[in-house]
Amino acid sequence: MVSERRELQSITVERNDAIVTITLRRPQKKNAANDAMWSELLDEFRSIPNDASVRAVVLTGAGGNFCSGADLSAEERDERPHQLSVMRHIGDVCLALHRLPQPTIAKVRGVAVGAGMNLALSCDLIAASEDARFSEIFAKRGLSLDFGGSWLLPRLIGLHRAKELALLADIIDARRAAELGLVNRVLPDDELDACVDDWATRLAGGPPIALAMSKRMLNNAFNVTLEQAIDDEGLSQTVNFGTTDTPEAIAAFVEKREPEFHGR
Rank of each mutant, 00 (worst) to 15 (best):
R109T: 12
C67K: 10
A128I: 02
A210C: 05
A62D: 14
H160E: 15
E130Q: 15
R77M: 13
P101C: 00
A178H: 15
E76P: 08
I19Y: 09
A56D: 07
T104E: 07
G69E: 09
E130F: 07
G206F: 11
V54G: 04
A74R: 14
E4S: 13
V86C: 04
F134P: 10
I105D: 06
E233V: 14
A251K: 09
I19A: 05
R175M: 12
R55G: 01
E75K: 09
M213T: 12
T21L: 04
M213G: 11
L121Y: 02
W38T: 09
T244S: 09
A194T: 13
E76M: 04
E136M: 15
L153G: 08
N118M: 15
F241N: 06
G263T: 05
T12Q: 15
G91E: 13
L152S: 06
Q83V: 15
L218C: 03
V254E: 15
N223Q: 14
I11N: 02
E191W: 01
S236G: 03
R161N: 04
V86Q: 07
A128L: 00
I48N: 01
A74E: 15
A128C: 00
R202F: 00
L97D: 06
T243L: 00
D43I: 08
D35R: 15
A56G: 07
L165P: 03
M37A: 06
T201N: 09
L59S: 03
S39A: 06
M117K: 02
S53F: 02
T244E: 12
E40L: 01
H82T: 08
M37S: 00
I172A: 00
D17Y: 08
T201S: 02
S10Q: 14
R80K: 01
E179F: 02
G148H: 00
D51W: 07
F261G: 00
R155M: 10
S73C: 13
A128D: 00
A229T: 04
R264S: 14
A132M: 09
D189S: 13
F261T: 01
